[in-house]
């Protein structure tokens, strides 16, 4: 295995595209280093992208926020602007692993690792976030939901790197939230994860909603029926029940060491209802204060 730490995105892409053997991007390394020690073994080349200045930044863009590929969970959590606009995304990213993991793990890495249980991805999908992909043939923007194609599989072509994620601007009276179920209080992989983002009109009626559902299928799902259950309602008890039913119905889970089909299906609905209630409260009250109070 060779190690390279290029200074520019272009040289990183060139290294990645030019490697005849297997190559891996190293950002936070919290998934990659675990894989290096497993039976899967070592790639021929590891490209550390943390020396690329442009990837370290969180920048305001068109009323939204662009998050660089090497921004760690801890750095994201300390950024007041992103936390105020997208508290659900930030709390999802902050749920990835321990304090130690937060010091390294990145949201882009979480996306590109392509685990169906990735904590930040349901929240990113609910947020309609866009990944910026750079490769030998230039740069393209891709909906985050299109990056993963299956467990550990992505749509990225050879030589392509996700350089950043854009969280779009927020309309007024919007809120988002992410909840996951784990057996312990920390240090577990999500058994179910639900991200909800919604916007209300002045009268409190939901005008837009997106619901992302993790760990219940081969990829994180965007559940349109769940959003439809909320849109046009005041997000009352009946709407929440329909939301829960839609989420449970969308589940195509497996039985594994972390949970049963029955459990995941039921809890997806329970968490969707709870997450929507939090998102609603944030939309009604102004999210930055809401998030601080919950902490």
């Amino acid at each position: 295995m060779r190690y390279e730490a290029p200074r520019t995105l272009e040289s990183a892409v060139a290294l990645l595209a030019g490697e005849p053997g297997s190559a891996q991007i190293l950002a936070g390394g919290t998934d990659l280093l675990v894989r290096l020690k497993s039976d899967i073994g070592e790639p021929d080349l590891v490209i550390d992208i943390k020396r690329i200045e442009a990837m370290k930044a969180i920048t305001a863009e068109d009323g939204g926020w662009r998050i660089g590929a090497t921004v760690s969970g801890a750095e994201l959590g300390e950024h007041d602007g992103v936390g105020a606009a997208w508290p659900g995304v930030v709390e999802a990213a902050e749920l990835i692993g321990s304090t130690q993991i937060q010091g390294r793990a990145t949201m882009v890495g979480n996306l590109c690792n392509a685990s169906p249980a990735a904590d930040s991805v349901p929240a990113l999908i609910a947020a309609e976030a866009v990944a910026r992909v750079t490769g030998p043939d230039g740069t393209r923007d891709v909906a985050v939901g299109e990056i993963a194609t299956g467990p550990g599989q992505t749509s990225l072509a050879k030589g392509e790197i996700v350089a950043s994620i854009l969280l779009p601007a927020r309309p007024a009276r919007s809120g988002d939230a992410y909840l996951r179920f784990i057996p312990r209080t920390e240090m577990d992989i999500a058994v179910v994860g639900v991200g909800v983002s919604l916007t209300l009109d002045a009268s409190g009626i939901c005008t837009a909603a997106r619901v992302g559902l993790g760990a219940v299928a081969a990829t994180v799902l965007l559940v349109e029926a769940a959003a439809a259950a909320l849109i046009g309602t005041a997000i009352d008890e009946a709407a929440l029940e329909r939301l829960a039913a839609a989420c449970s119905a969308a589940c195509k889970p497996i039985d594994d060491k972390r949970g049963t089909i029955e459990f995941r299906t039921k809890v997806a609905g329970v968490l969707a209802r709870r997450a929507a209630a939090i998102a609603l409260a944030r939309a009604l009250s102004g999210h930055s204060t809401a998030r601080k109070a919950e902490k």
């Binding site: 057996p183 312990r184 209080t185 920390e186 240090m187 577990d188 992989i189 594994d256 060491k257 972390r258």
Partner: peptide, 28 residues
């Protein structure tokens, strides 16, 4: 509450690590 040896149908241990062999953490 949470600790257990989980075997697959092949008789292999499925959770040989502290991620899925879940001992209590401080926040529990």
């Amino acid at each position: 509450l949470n600790e257990e040896y989980i075997y697959g149908a092949d008789g292999r241990l499925q959770n040989p690590g502290f991620l899925d062999y879940r001992i209590p953490v401080a926040s529990d």
